[in-house]
Deep mutational scan, measured.
Amino acid sequence: QWKVGDKCSAIWSEDGCIYPATIASIDFKRETCVVVYTGYGNREEQNLSDLLSPICE
């Protein structure tokens, strides 16, 4: 189960590419979260089910 502060990978809606991110907040009722893309600072809402394991850098 994901928690705030977890590192993950998420698909950015603008280009469909996968980027490393950190979970900033979680809404368990809606099963969504807000991620912050590492190195970019962009925030975006994602479905918890769409999150991927962190990418090894």
Rank of each mutant, 00 (worst) to 15 (best):
S13F: 06
D15S: 02
S53H: 09
E44N: 01
C33L: 07
N42M: 14
C33N: 00
I18E: 04
S13L: 08
Q46N: 05
G41N: 10
S25E: 12
F28M: 11
S49W: 07
A24V: 15
E45Q: 12
E44V: 03
L52W: 04
Y37M: 01
G41V: 06
V36A: 05
G39E: 08
N42K: 10
T22V: 14
D50I: 09
D6L: 08
E14F: 14
A10T: 03
V36N: 02
D27P: 00
E31N: 14
N47W: 13
E57S: 14
I23L: 02
E57W: 13
G5D: 12
A21W: 07
A10F: 07
S13G: 07
I23C: 00
P54K: 06
F28G: 08
C17P: 03
W12P: 01
F28W: 15
Y19R: 00
T32L: 06
K7S: 11
E31M: 15
C17R: 15
R30V: 10
P20H: 10
Q1R: 14
E14G: 15
V4N: 07
Q46F: 06
E14S: 08
Y40F: 14
K3G: 14
F28L: 12
S49H: 09
D15M: 09
E57F: 11
S25Q: 06
N42G: 08
T38N: 08
C17K: 15
K3T: 11
F28H: 14
P54C: 11
R43H: 10
Y19I: 04
G5Y: 08
I18V: 12
K7Q: 12
T32G: 06
S25G: 04
I55S: 08
T38W: 13
I11L: 07
D15K: 09
C17L: 15
E45T: 13
D15E: 02
S53Q: 14
P20K: 04
G5M: 01
N47D: 06
S49I: 12
D27M: 03
S25A: 09
V4Q: 08
E45S: 04
I26W: 03
S53Y: 11
L51F: 03
Y37I: 06
S9H: 13
P20V: 10
P20R: 04
L52N: 02
Q46I: 09
Y37E: 01
W2K: 09
V34K: 01
C56D: 15
T22P: 01
P54T: 09
Y40W: 13
G16L: 07
E31D: 09
Y37D: 02
A10Q: 05
C33S: 00
V35F: 02
E45A: 06
Y37G: 01
K7W: 10
G41M: 09
K29P: 08
S9L: 15
W12D: 03
Q1E: 13
P54N: 04
E14D: 05
V34D: 02
L51N: 02
I18D: 04
N47Y: 13
I55H: 10
N47L: 13
A21N: 01
I55T: 09
S53L: 15
A10M: 06
L48C: 15
G41T: 04
L51C: 06
G16N: 06
T22A: 03
Y37P: 01
R43E: 11
S53K: 12
G5T: 05
A21T: 06
V36R: 00
P20G: 08
L48E: 05
I11G: 01
D50C: 05
Q1S: 12
D6V: 01
E44G: 02
G39L: 12
I55P: 10
Y19F: 05
P20M: 12
K7C: 12
S53W: 14
I26A: 03
L51V: 02
A24M: 14
N42T: 14
T22Y: 09
I23W: 01
N47T: 08
S13C: 06
D50Y: 06
C33V: 12
D27Y: 07
K7M: 11
S9N: 11
T32F: 08
R30D: 09
Y40E: 04
S53D: 14
G39Y: 14
E57V: 13
C56R: 09
V36D: 01
S9W: 15
D27G: 01
D15F: 08
E14V: 15
S25W: 08
K7T: 08
T32K: 05
L52M: 12
C56S: 14
S53G: 11
K29Q: 14
I11C: 03
K3E: 15
S13M: 07
Q46W: 07
D6E: 01
D15Q: 08
F28A: 11
V36S: 02
I26L: 03
N47I: 07
E45F: 05
C56K: 09
I18W: 08
Y40L: 14
A21I: 12
N47V: 04
C33M: 06
S53C: 08
D27L: 05
L52E: 03
N42I: 15
R30H: 11
Q1I: 07
R30C: 02
S49V: 10
S25T: 11
